[in-house]
Computed example of a mutant assay.
Amino acid sequence: MAGWEVSRHPEWDMMYAAGLTVREISDLCHWQCTTIHRHLQMREKYESGTHAKHEAALAARGVDRPTISWRKLLAEVLEFQTIHSRLPHHEGDDTERRLHRWVLDQGRAYRNGEMSAPKIILLDALVGWSIDIRQQERDEVWRAKLTSLIEFTATYQRTPRYQNFSSEAERVLGVWLHVQHQRRAEGKLLPWRLEMMDEAFLHWQSRM
């Protein structure tokens, strides 16, 4: 068995070094504060500077620290995800929409590089929180359009036209396809979208 010179709880060490308080570590890991205190005291004994590193990180946290109200909201979202096996959605009741907006705000701050390390560590328990939900919804709409385009082409043995169209549905698909051509020509079509278009329609890039 390894001696005390080897940390028994390296995850606590990481959180403490990132500036999380003992109370925050306790809330996240569901261990008593006294147990965590004893562990950290032992780490300071075998790894001098542990506490000083924590104090420096704590001082650097500034205004973007996980406040009590912030941790309360995180706990609500975690409970929601545990019960429903998903993140809150914008089409839910007032409580769910409130939690949905909070998750969006966290993801936006993270992607903009505006989130402190303690918050990132605490949010690690929330599955999918850093995903751009709105972008995910736009991607789903794009995939649905591609499916409609494939179905149209299979039915009529041609691609839809945005001029001289036979129906409003064809015009909408024709405009969408024309936009994909434009974005591809400008180098703005996402690589995975370009790949899906290439797989669905051989030589589609040569058509304008």
Rank of each mutant, 00 (worst) to 15 (best):
S48F: 13
W142N: 05
G174Q: 05
L126I: 01
E76P: 07
Q135M: 14
H51G: 08
W102K: 10
H178Y: 15
E151Q: 09
R183A: 14
Q41R: 04
E96R: 09
R23Q: 03
W176L: 02
H84E: 10
H51T: 13
F80Y: 06
G3C: 00
G49M: 04
Q106M: 14
Q106A: 02
Q136H: 04
A60E: 06
Q157M: 11
Q32H: 02
S26A: 13
R61I: 15
D94C: 08
F165Y: 11
P191L: 07
Y46S: 12
N112W: 08
L99E: 07
M42F: 00
R143Q: 09
A154E: 02
L58A: 11
L190N: 07
I121Q: 02
E151H: 02
I36M: 15
A117P: 05
T67I: 05
R71T: 05
R38V: 10
R61S: 15
Q135Y: 15
Y156D: 04
S48Y: 08
Q205T: 14
T67C: 02
P160H: 01
M197A: 02
K119A: 12
A75F: 03
L73I: 14
Q182A: 03
V6E: 03
W31D: 07
R183T: 12
T147S: 13
I131P: 01
L40D: 12
A169E: 15
I83L: 10
N164H: 13
L87W: 00
T95E: 15
K72S: 15
F201R: 00
V172G: 13
R158P: 08
E151M: 07
E79W: 07
M197I: 03
V6N: 05
E186C: 03
I121L: 11
A52P: 12
L58K: 10
F165G: 04
L20G: 01
V103T: 15
V77T: 05
M208V: 02
L40A: 15
A59S: 12
